[in-house]
Design a binder for these strands. Structure first.
Lengths: 242, 242
DNA sequence: GGAATGTATGCTGTAGGCAGTCGACGACAA
DNA sequence: TTGTCGTCGACTGCCTACAGCATACATTCC
């Protein structure tokens, strides 16, 4: 039922059904309603979302392209189940991309953009102090996005946002418990961008993201993988009806 | 011809129709049968490929995810028409990714892999001397792929191969006319990887790819954009039949 | 003659349906 | 009890059909 959006992220023009279906499935994955390794049965999704299988299939194709689901020919779509190694690799790539973004941002600093950065930073710090985790997380991604956009490299920005979204999915719970220090690093980063010192900016961003990576690994080491790769096939308990 | 990729990700079994359709459309784009900005009418593609619209649609979804086509809701798919800026940005990202790959490859050099690299390098140089452009280009991408795979970072490798494929589409014609020097750089790169000097390896790769970028820009400056953004809508000349 | 509106046409977006295929369960034999 | 084979169910992959829409052309009015 309800083909309406939950107004998740501002979807300016959910022109097509597959777009909104994609957003909704993605949200279900991110919030954990659809668990890693879970088999996504097209009919179930279609019924739940109140559409036919077609837009669901197309949304799954798109999601597979971004690495959110795995398509196994003849078997269907499964929520991607990231291994620790893969998460680490993704975090490394994230570091690489964002470091370069920071460098490019510092290369041509723009006053208006800097001002925006400071606003976001202040907002984030305030949210952090107020223990408003959601707002802090939102401000965090907002700030990183803003920096990436300052790089004036759209290809880089697109790639980074894709990677960052998955990174956030993997380690969101970790992000909170180092909030305070994180925002100090952000402030230093903005200073470096403003003064145009690209090496410093890059270095700060590198250490900043590396720090995140470290805490991810540590948290992983603390509570080892709780979920086995999940059984290949989900099976209805078999309708015993005659 | 040849559904084989640049051996990027060996697609062992194009089990499903949409996979083979994807490969065929992609090839048509790369070889230029489908020109940038061209409207890809689903029915035409389906008829030409001897399938129904369904697998064509799904292939187009996947292609849009990799940036080969643009989907405009309500209008359909159009072959992506890269601007000079975007190509330059993509080349910059390529440089970034491959430089990191080279660094990681040098960090844990493997004798077998090194041996493979040398083989490919020799093959490429021979092809270059023999003026066998196709073989040289193939060896080139093969070598870069091998280096990337040595990075032991699958996420990075996948991302790089995607970017590299598009880069090759943009500047293939340019690649040839600096073939000789290119292979000397390759040889130096392999040496650096073998000795494990990651800074040197990274530096060589960076300059190597930057060089490519420069020649791209120069060739672009030489013959300025010949293709206007292409008309939005392709219209059949209207069947005048009665 | 120019502009606005009506009409025709092709395309996309979506729905529904059928066949092929894969996995699982149960029966039979050793 | 254990291993192997046959049957069944379910899901995917693909095809066909219909509705909505955007564009271009023709007509009419000012």
């Amino acid at each position: 039922m309800l083909a309406n959006q939950g107004s998740t992220a501002k979807i300016v023009r959910p022109t097509t059904l597959r777009e909104s279906v994609l957003e909704r499935i993605l949200e279900l994955i991110i919030i954990g309603s659809l668990k890693p390794g879970q088999h996504l049965v097209e009919n179930e999704l279609a019924d739940n979302l109140g559409v036919s299988r077609q837009p669901v299939r197309e949304a799954l194709q798109l999601l597979s392209g971004e690495g959110w689901v795995d398509l196994r020919p003849g078997h269907g779509a499964y929520v991607h189940s990231p291994t620790v190694e893969e998460a680490d690799q993704l975090l490394a790539v994230r570091t690489l991309l964002e470091t370069e973004s920071a460098r490019l941002a510092a290369r041509n600093p723009d006053k208006t953009d800097i001002s925006d950065l400071r606003d976001i930073c202040n907002r984030g710090l305030a949210a952090c102090v107020a223990d408003d985790v959601d707002a802090a997380v939102a401000a965090n991604s907002e700030l990183h996005t803003a920096v990436v956009n300052m790089s004036d490299n759209r290809v880089l920005a697109d790639l980074t946002s894709q990677v960052a979204r998955r990174v956030r999915w993997y380690h969101t719970p970790v992000a909170r418990h180092r909030g305070r220090a994180s925002w100090e690093e952000h402030a230093a980063l903005i200073d470096a961008i403003e003064t145009g010192d690209e090496d410093v900016a890059a270095d700060i961003m590198r250490r900043h993201t590396e720090h995140t990576r470290q805490s991810y690994l540590e948290s992983r080491a603390a509570n080892p993988v709780e979920e086995p790769p999940a059984p290949i096939r989900r099976r209805r308990p078999r309708a015993v009806s005659g």
